[in-house]
Design a protein around this nucleic acid. Structure first.
Lengths: 343, 343
DNA sequence: GTTAGCACTCGGACAAAAAGAGTGCTAAAA
DNA sequence: TTTTAGCACTCTTTTTGTCCGAGTGCTAAC
């Protein structure tokens, strides 16, 4: 069912107001706050909006609060584009200027930037190592039967994994294997290394095919297990909001958000979308049912590398958050480009 | 001033009770709960204890709560040794069984174990890389003028740092330098590498003395800057306790504890002591004035490598926590020994 | 179709009253 | 002299009742 223009205006005003105040919005305050209709008219419209499911009333003598359906409509059609003040965009840009210590550092810095500027909770998915190009593989013997595998990619990301080594493979041979793999697969995407390697085995490597294969599978597995791939920042920002003035609610929120597995899955799914806005019960995670999640993906040359996002109360300032995410997306794209351009 | 036996017994009972219940303890409940004196007698003693500064009264008609002075006495002299149930010690031991992926992983797992078993907040100071022995140094060229320095020690710990490289140093030379440093300083303690290297410069390295020196200083600096050296776990556990039912208190606590610099300093100082118990206002950190911190150091062959600890409300279960820390200290000692024994 | 007016509802704030927990003191008991 | 029973007193917490105001829905007038 279509809402007429007046209903839309009123609904927008209510959402805008509620986002600011977190208290139910009444007809009178709206009418006095610049709306061109009397409180009675607004009241009637509000009653309609309620039966249509856009508004809810905590109790009879309270104002109305937007329902999730209202937020959905707001985000999809009614929201007006926010813009950042000069100071804010300078601040934001500053986070990307100074941190040139590799992709990981930039992304961690991004998480911090997001949480500090939005005052919500920020998440950043670290990029899948698979899309990067191999620069160096080094196997360093640790003890008998154990070695450390160090993978360095063009992005400066490195991954360290303890691997098992057959007893008859000595330090020299480990070094030779490192060299061989580095030489042969340098500048290949990591994801292709794994599958291609087995087939292309030959030369020095063929003698140790079994070992090399198990090495690779361990690396992949470790990649999957490594749950530090989600960077979290500003989780405690949420305690600022009246929604979390109840400690037990705060607790469940914090617990949910620290569940890196779930957050990983969520962000991974969002990597394929330019932007996503997930409102309240649309969230899969039980603990985010009272929150909204806004994400954006970051890409280089069109390839999605990962995603980042902001979690806030359902009454979060969607317009502002989306503007910030868009901004960050651009900045991040530029910075990452500069890391990855030297092919 | 000495307290007679009866005062001590009563004080202990009050502390024990308050640790459990977090509510002021009255004379009647003590007398009914197994004390062999009447409530009136206990009342008199409590009045004495209050003037002596061991007890405080939130208001006239409430029971008494222990003062910090009382906790101090309790910890120093009155506390009875707690012991863990079989299940608990098995649980604790389990954390150390499964994680053999290097020292870092073990210590992170330790933090988790501590916070989960104590239900308080746990901190673990990662070991200073300086005491470990160098196994491998690898410089991997990234872009022009940048390289990644990877340091691997016998403990499996590795540290990655982006460094600047003079433009006239090519990939081959980086590799040669890596080899030379590795060959010359393998099995030396990292801390001696830094200082010794400059003096022993010679052979292949002498030509690049400037570069190597700056490389080392960057590594040291990075080491100092790297604040991820404190592992934090279970910060949100504190929200369980009535002391933090007020959100603003919870907020300041979380903010304090996430201040890794301060936590680092605190733990660093504690590394030289077998155990420490710091109660309430004895803490340097403003935000820990309502907490107590109990720490223990972990050592291998008598050398202190670092420390770990538990933060809880001042009414924390000191006996239990100390027992757990002692237990963890032993376990950790054994595990680390096994990592470091192959010289 | 819009708005003014009005009766009605309900939660929040406030005050007074009641309940409860615990104390200090005194006087009796040991 | 030490311990304890008893009691009046204090102060907090809980309960109860009242009032106020914000906001509503409905009706009738504009």
């Amino acid at each position: 069912m279509e809402l007429d223009s007046r209903k839309l205006q009123i609904l927008r005003a209510i959402v805008d107001e509620y986002i600011l105040s977190a208290t139910p919005v009444g007809s009178k305050s709206l009418s006095q706050g610049g709306m061109k209709w009397s409180s009675a008219t607004i009241r009637n419209e509000m009653a309609d909006l309620e039966t249509l499911g856009y508004l809810a009333q905590p109790h009879t003598s309270a104002g109305r609060i937007p329902s999730e359906k209202a937020y959905r409509l707001y985000v999809d059609q009614m929201m007006q584009r926010a813009h950042l003040s000069d100071e804010e965009s300078r601040l934001l840009y500053g986070y990307f200027r100074d941190h040139v210590h590799g992709i990981d550092a930039v992304l961690r810095s991004t998480a911090k930037a997001l949480s500090e500027i939005t005052h919500y909770t920020a998440l950043v998915l670290m990029p899948d190592i698979g899309v990067n190009r191999l620069r160096h593989l080094q196997l360093v013997p640790l003890t008998v039967g154990k070695a450390l595998a160090i993978v360095v990619t063009d992005a400066g990301v490195s991954q360290n994994t303890v691997i098992d080594v057959p007893e008859d493979v000595g330090p020299e041979e480990l070094d030779r294997i490192s060299k061989a793999i580095t030489a042969r697969f340098s500048d290949r995407r990591m994801s292709t290394v794994s599958s291609a390697l087995v087939r292309e085995l030959g030369g020095e490597l063929s003698a140790r095919a079994d070992f090399v294969e198990s090495l690779l599978s361990t690396l992949c597995e470790n990649q999957a297990r490594d749950r530090r791939m989600v960077e979290l920042s500003g989780a405690t920002n949420m305690l600022e909001y009246p929604e979390y003035s109840d400690v037990s609610k705060a607790r469940t929120f914090l617990a949910t958000v620290e569940q890196k597995d779930d957050m990983y899955r969520m962000l991974k799914k969002a990597s394929n979308m330019e932007f996503t806005v997930t409102i309240g019960s649309e969230n899969e995670q039980e603990g985010l049912r009272d929150c909204s999640v806004v994400t954006a993906s970051y890409r280089v040359n069109g390839t999605p590398l990962g995603s980042f996002g902001v979690i806030g109360p359902t009454r979060m300032d969607y317009a502002r958050v989306l503007t910030i995410l868009k901004n960050v997306q651009t900045n991040l794209g530029t910075v990452l480009q500069s890391f990855l351009k030297e092919e």
